[in-house]
């Protein structure tokens, strides 16, 4: 994330979207960043990228979201995409048990490639397809609790909880950041170099708010 800052926001947070193929990651992304749902979108090859700027606790936060391909082959390449990510939305499909069973594999993937402090939200997507439900909401809650993740059931098609899912992640990240900043201030005399990778990434992205926000 060491690219040029365009000074339109206070913070820039990189979020990755992960989960099995076909669970609806790309539609969650397009719903969140463009308010669009596409019933027959193309499969994602490699990685796709979108941004949206929004308010979190009175601060302007630019969310830079990376949508990755679901298939195993693309993970080797995508591991580079985890670099600098401070949040992850781990998506499964409530109508496909297998995609829920694979959540553990994705968590392992995050542990291997992402920063250990990454904020993870698990999303059981396609909640509109109630008649096809194969994963109970309680099962989602139980797993989330066990793994220490936030959890929501979402529907990209109906727009349910999409906003809330990202807001939750971004707010949580922001709180961690501000807490760390505070702690750093208090310990200012002891060290000038922050120790955590995450903090650096986020801190060097903060700029001033001179222009208006750039996205819907």
């Amino acid at each position: 994330m060491g690219h040029r800052v365009d000074h339109e926001y206070d913070y820039l947070f990189k979020i990755v979207l992960i989960g099995d193929s076909g669970v609806g990651k790309s539609n969650i992304l397009s719903m969140f960043t463009r308010n669009e749902f596409c019933l027959e979108s193309k499969s994602t090859i490699g990685v796709e990228f979108a941004t949206r700027t929004l308010q979190v606790d009175g601060k302007t936060v630019k969310a830079q979201i990376w949508d990755t391909a679901g298939q195993e082959r693309y993970r080797a390449i995508t591991s580079a995409y985890y670099r600098g990510a401070v949040g992850a939305l781990l998506v499964y499909d409530i109508t496909k048990r297998q995609t829920f069973d694979n959540v553990q594999r994705w968590l392992r993937e995050l542990r291997d490639h992402a920063d250990s402090n990454i904020v993870i939200m698990m999303a059981g997507n396609k909640s509109d397809l109630k008649h096809l439900r194969a994963v109970q909401e309680e099962d989602g809650h139980a797993l989330a609790e066990k793994e220490g993740l936030s959890f929501l059931e979402t529907s990209a098609l109906e727009g349910t909880n999409i906003e809330k899912a990202f807001q939750t992640i971004l707010t949580e990240i922001y709180h961690i950041i501000s807490k760390k900043a505070l702690a750093a201030q208090e310990a200012a005399a002891t060290s000038t170099v922050p120790g955590q990778g995450t903090t650096i990434n986020v801190a060097d992205a903060s700029g001033n708010t001179s222009k208006g926000c750039c996205s819907t």
Binding site: T33, F37, C38, L39, E40, S41, S215
Partner: peptide, 14 residues
């Protein structure tokens, strides 16, 4: 189809 023009809407940045 729901998909009309869904693929390329830039949000003003690019």
């Amino acid at each position: 189809m729901l998909k009309k023009g869904k693929l390329k809407l830039p949000d003003g940045l690019g």
